[in-house]
Design a protein around this nucleic acid. Structure first.
Lengths: 335, 335
DNA sequence: TTGTATGCGTTATCAA
DNA sequence: TTGATAACGCATACAA
């Protein structure tokens, strides 16, 4: 696939490449007629500057990398949607890579994407990432970096997250006010920021309403396909009257499990879980959910990253942006 | 963000860049000791070849472009998942762009991605694309191109699709055998390949079982948010006993509409629609669905595109690959 | 106003 | 076995 270059134009028009380059870039001192000729020829032959050559020269790629655990997870695909919207508007391309919840894969993918000279990186940590030295290194080298959703305390950096504490708090508060006392919690992996914050919100709500905390009511759950069913089975034995699913992905599988078991919701069991608005609207039965701002998160994170890349003063100091979740009450969870 | 280059290694080791390059590439004639030194230094300082420089030299980017209508649609995100898996394994990156079902946006996005010198393009047409001269032009220029899911008859090219005819046929057959006669069809836009094939399957099944075709039972539906409810309302007036939703995306909104109206499924109304396996498993009520092989489609399309890019003989002649859909019967639709 | 030369990182060709 | 040089496409400092 041969594409026309500056050289081709120069040859065709009997000019030097620099003249052509200047004409194309609308440089200050250039003969109007020459410019016209060049532009005309360029247009006619569909000239487009080779971004690879530009990247090499300017040491930038006008592309950002996005590392997420799974694309085919509605939270992340919705977030990517938000990222893409911003990137597109600001003239950047999006290079996507999945860690598949694996630490090793995450490290390799980040290395590859960085090797491509992306101008910055948006990352949501894999479920098995606890060591983040690979990211610290990049931050130290000055690569613009914005974490979203699954962040790490071990690095001082730009972060965009949902207000998981508040989200969990209000969900538990709602359940307590509906007369629920034994609220089981199915959480994601314990070291993840989202898990910790949601657990904190859970505990805070219990404490505020004088409901005793029972360790037995908490289970952590990996991403394996049969994990949720097993863990919910464990929790079932503790005879809870409500189930708080502290993870987007688990909420959906839990729903399937409870249906499979024929458990009457919300009477027998009030299910409440994190998810994103689109999923809640489309798929969920009319149960109460904590809606996460997935699109907005992608949107905000990408905007911040691009500000950072373009050295906008607004993005100078590290900040953690917290986005509101929304408690969508769509059916009484009254006992 | 400075990264170490061949030049840096050469300078540090008092060698020429060509020697270093040869040592790194394990070239034929090179002193074992020199090689050891270079490799050691490279490893220690995390040398990685600059893919942009390579791209410029080799006139290839090792990146493929993917143009889809919407990322945050489970069919496409699942397909992208399949694409990414293959691309990753074969050393390519994936640059993603959404047309948002707009022809204009599709044209612009394709232009941009091609300007990035992607080595090939995977495309699923926007809902409003009828003129495909922008793609013909690229194909003529020799850019490797593979269409998937939403393809066009107007171009002779590699295509990967679901067997929409058969899928629709078996769904309608199933409904008829369950005693349904007035099967309404909610279709996507009429010019889309998927719509036409599914409609053909619908008609063929009716005809085979001697059920008269009634134009009144067909409605075409754009992607606007309130369209499905309106169109289903229209269809409702024709007093159907089953509803065949010939589109992934519409299936979900239709489900929501029917629930909202409190219609008893599947007794009063047998709903059957195209969707993908993951969605069917997780979200769908136990209704019969035509499961689309989204992941597999991405997988197959990406593999074919990369074969094409790498000029594997298997990919020489144009072919249309049809993937089987699966009728997942999970509750009796018996009248 | 235009042309020449240089460099971005890498590899291939040719010379030593 | 190693080094010098050119080339990929572009922009720019400098020369004319």
């Amino acid at each position: 696939m041969h594409t026309v270059t500056i050289k081709d134009i120069a040859k065709a028009l009997n000019l030097s490449t620099s003249t052509v380059s200047r004409a194309l870039r609308d440089s200050y001192e250039i003969n109007a007629e020459t410019k016209r000729l060049v532009l005309e020829y360029a247009h006619k032959h569909h000239y487009h500057p080779n971004p690879i050559a530009l990247s090499l020269k300017e040491n930038r790629s006008r592309a950002i990398g996005v590392i997420v655990p799974e694309i085919a997870n509605s939270f992340f695909s919705e977030a990517i949607n938000g990222i893409e919207a911003i990137a597109y508007n600001r003239g950047y391309h999006v290079i996507i890579s999945q860690s598949h919840e694996s630490y090793e894969r995450e490290v390799v993918n980040i290395r590859q994407v960085v090797a491509r000279r992306v101008d910055g990186l948006l990352i949501s940590l894999s479920g098995h990432t606890t060591d983040i030295s690979h990211l610290k290194e990049l931050a130290d080298k000055g690569l613009p970096l914005v974490f979203f959703d699954r962040v790490s305390d071990l690095i001082d950096c730009h972060k965009v997250v949902a207000d998981n504490f508040k989200g969990a708090f209000s969900a538990i508060e709602h359940l307590i006010q509906s007369g629920r006392k034994r609220i089981a919690m199915l959480a994601s992996l314990p070291w993840l920021s989202i898990t910790q914050e949601r657990l904190a919100g859970y505990k805070a709500a219990l404490s505020q309403y004088g409901v005793p905390f029972d360790e037995q009511l908490i289970r952590y759950c990996d991403f394996g396909a049969d994990e949720p069913e097993k863990k919910i089975g464990d929790l079932w034995l503790t005879q809870p009257d409500a189930l708080f699913i502290a993870s987007d992905r688990l909420a959906l599988s839990s729903l399937a499990v409870l249906k499979k078991w024929g458990i009457d919701m919300p009477t027998k069991m009030a299910l409440i879980g994190f998810t994103n608005a689109k999923v809640a609207d489309l798929f969920f039965p009319p149960l109460t959910v904590i809606s996460q701002p997935a699109f907005e998160m992608g949107h905000v994170a990408a905007d911040l990253l691009l500000d950072l890349i373009e050295k906008k003063p607004s993005a100078l100091s590290y900040q953690t942006i917290k986005l509101e979740t929304q408690l969508i009450i769509r059916e009484s969870t009254q006992l």
